[in-house]
Amino acid sequence: KKSYVLIKVKNPKTKETHTIVVPEENLEEVLKALASQPNVKVVDIERFP
């Protein structure tokens, strides 16, 4: 059974918020990819039960 993680990201320029759902096993690479985006800020990470 896969567990999923909900990542909320915000664009500081446009103030838009997006929610991305990723499998927990991919969380680290997704966070690394997001960290390299200049106008993306991770605001929240939630685990799915």
Rank of each mutant, 00 (worst) to 15 (best):
V30L: 07
K2Y: 03
N26P: 00
H18M: 12
E28A: 11
E29W: 09
I20W: 08
P49R: 04
E25H: 07
A35M: 12
V5A: 03
R47G: 04
L34K: 00
S3E: 12
N26G: 06
E28C: 13
A33L: 14
I45A: 02
V5S: 02
K15V: 03
P23L: 15
L6Y: 11
I20E: 01
N26A: 09
K41T: 13
L6V: 15
T17N: 04
K15R: 08
E24N: 04
V43R: 02
K15Q: 13
V22E: 01
T19C: 09
N11I: 07
P38A: 09
V42Y: 02
A33S: 10
F48G: 06
E29C: 10
P38S: 11
V21W: 14
K41V: 15
S3N: 12
N26E: 11
E25V: 05
E28H: 10
L31Y: 02
R47W: 14
A33D: 07
R47V: 08
K10N: 10
V9T: 05
V43W: 02
L6Q: 12
L6I: 15
L27Y: 03
V40K: 04
R47L: 08
T19E: 06
E46P: 01
V5W: 15
K2G: 14
E25D: 08
T19F: 14
E46M: 13
L31P: 00
K15P: 03
V21E: 04
T14W: 04
K13V: 14
K10R: 13
Y4F: 09
F48P: 04
V5L: 07
I20K: 02
V43D: 03
F48T: 06
P23K: 10
N26I: 12
E24I: 10
V9C: 05
H18I: 13
V21H: 03
V40T: 10
T19S: 08
N26S: 10
P49G: 06
R47H: 09
E24H: 05
S3T: 11
I20M: 06
K15Y: 05
N39D: 12
L34M: 04
V40H: 04
V21C: 14
P23F: 11
P12K: 15
V9R: 00
P49N: 06
T14D: 03
A35W: 06
Y4H: 08
P23V: 07
I45E: 01
K2E: 12
I20T: 01
L34C: 02
V9N: 00
P12C: 15
K8C: 07
I45V: 07
P38E: 09
N39I: 03
S3D: 14
T14P: 00
S3Q: 11
E29P: 03
P38Y: 03
P38I: 09
V40S: 06
T19H: 09
H18V: 11
K2S: 07
V21F: 10
K13F: 14
K10L: 15
K2N: 07
K10H: 15
K2V: 10
T19N: 07
E16L: 11
P12M: 15
E25P: 03
K13P: 02
E29L: 10
I7Q: 00
K8F: 12
E46F: 09
A35N: 08
I45T: 03
L34A: 01
F48Q: 06
K8I: 14
P49K: 04
T17D: 03
E28D: 09
E25A: 08
V22C: 09
L31G: 00
A33T: 06
V30W: 10
L34R: 00
P38N: 09
L34W: 02
I20S: 01
L6K: 15
V43Y: 03
H18S: 08
T14I: 02
T19V: 13
I20G: 00
T17G: 03
K13R: 12
S36Q: 12
E16N: 06
Y4C: 13
N39A: 05
E24K: 04
L31W: 02
F48V: 13
V22W: 03
I7P: 00
S3V: 12
V42M: 03
V5M: 05
T19R: 07
I7K: 00
N11Q: 02
V30T: 07
L6M: 14
F48H: 08
K8G: 03
V5D: 01
I7A: 00
V43T: 06
